[in-house]
Design a protein around this nucleic acid. Sequence first.
DNA 1: TTACACATGTAAACGGTTACATGATTAG
DNA 2: CTAATCATGTAACCGTTTACATGTGTAA
Lengths: 180, 180
Amino acid sequence: MLEFVLLGMLMEGEMSGYDLKKTIDSTVGHFYNASYGSLYPALKRLADKGHVSMKETADSKNRKLYALLPEGREAFMQWLAEPQNSRRELLIRVFFFDYLEEGIRMEHLQGYRHAAEREVRELDAVRSVVESELAGIERPEDYYYRVSVLDYGLMHAKMQREWIQNIMERKSLNHVNPDK
Amino acid sequence: MLEFVLLGMLMEGEMSGYDLKKTIDSTVGHFYNASYGSLYPALKRLADKGHVSMKETADSKNRKLYALLPEGREAFMQWLAEPQNSRRELLIRVFFFDYLEEGIRMEHLQGYRHAAEREVRELDAVRSVVESELAGIERPEDYYYRVSVLDYGLMHAKMQREWIQNIMERKSLNHVNPDK
DNA sequence: TTACACATGTAAACGGTTACATGATTAG
DNA sequence: CTAATCATGTAACCGTTTACATGTGTAA
């Protein structure tokens, strides 16, 4: 995962490990964390694999610049085109979707939308069952927070569904590009 | 974390490791995963610490029942009363909030609400900056998905804020208890 | 001159998953 | 009788965090 994030960040141009950390923190940092303890070894692995090049700078700091090599670019693009593997990958992948071909992108987004819709339906069903169960017990107030967490899941799934819907309708672009 | 989840689940009564896994999957499973490979060793640790008791059943299966001991209950209640340590803990903690004293509960919820409000403000500010930056570049469409991920963060923060607000207003309880 | 940001890295520890191994019970 | 579910556990592996170690550049 981290390796692909690094490759993705290097798509923009060469950077040091330190820069990469800062870039990650300031972009995907809200939902993905990279510590130096994982970042530097990951860069070393990528260099060993021949996915990135490492160039020591002459500016007297012991600074090293990493740049994407064609092999690394290919590995990144291949990863990006794959279907999403884990839930936590969703946002990272979408973050890099500007690099992905429109066809595959839309295919993936449709998949995500479908998954989100299914989840809303499932949780709605669970919520109904829970509600009728609560109606039949002595002290339903004692389960208030448990039920609240279920509501969180439902709100989250609905939000996600709406978000994907907005993306597909290019709602956000209207913002950026009001005349269209 | 897992240890506290196990203790929390045992608040309801004695269970086997297998039952605990199923309970976790069917309640907090949407945002917390426990595999047997972590669950059984965790139960062993809890038993060694004297937080749970282990009783082998006579029903011919090699089934073991774990029950919460006073020390375990205390450890759990102490953990629950602590302020939230990591972002991922939020939902787990709230799930067990029915066990928490109303005063501390409200204190915590106010803290969560405050954090959520701050995050919305922060992301709103970031979003504004990004928008004006986009207005000044050649091809803003090329950053559409990056911006979308930022929008996700904003929608998520707003949803969370609303969720906490609803909890504090006992919106969910009206559902459960329509006459109030 | 001192504190903060820049900059790279390692080692131990942690928490977890995956795969494997084993066997009993139950429902079709 | 056979497949699914119940039931417990270990070992190897994985990625990551935390703490440590070290040193440079820069602005107050």
